[in-house]
């Protein structure tokens, strides 16, 4: 279940071009599993430039952290993404009340 307020979720999802780039990257490539640096490289940015936006997406659960060996990697949570999409879709159909 998604408990966050719809506006907050929307804000966290779409408040920057970087977030949109990260989300598009993971939507198109759901098997991507990489360090923050690797994710940044794949959207033509630096790790420091995407850190804050990635953190927001991690916070709402659409991205997940995993410990692989000695590294921390980021991956896409397809289930959570589906939940959020369903939630937002319902909010839009209900007129955002």
């Amino acid at each position: 279940m998604v408990n966050e307020d719809g506006i907050q979720v929307l804000d966290k999802l779409l408040s920057s071009d970087v977030k949109l780039s990260i989300l598009t990257l993971f939507h198109n490539n759901p098997g991507l599993l990489d360090r923050l640096e690797g994710v940044a490289l794949r959207i033509g940015r630096s790790a420091s430039a995407i850190e804050k936006d990635a953190e927001d997406l991690l916070e709402i659960g659409i991205l997940q952290r995993k410990k692989i060996g000695n590294s921390e990697v980021i991956c896409f949570d397809v289930k959570r993404d589906g939940e959020i999409q369903g939630f937002l879709s319902n909010r839009i159909l209900k007129g955002g009340d």
Binding site: N29, G31, L32, I68, V73
Partner: peptide, 25 residues
């Protein structure tokens, strides 16, 4: 094939595949 759980396409950095301590990629 991925939806049917017959295939998984994994995209990562080469050094992560080598592994280290703990869980392998």
């Amino acid at each position: 094939l991925e939806k049917e759980k017959k295939l998984k396409v994994v995209c990562t950095s080469p050094d992560l595949l080598i592994g280290g301590d703990g869980e392998h990629l």
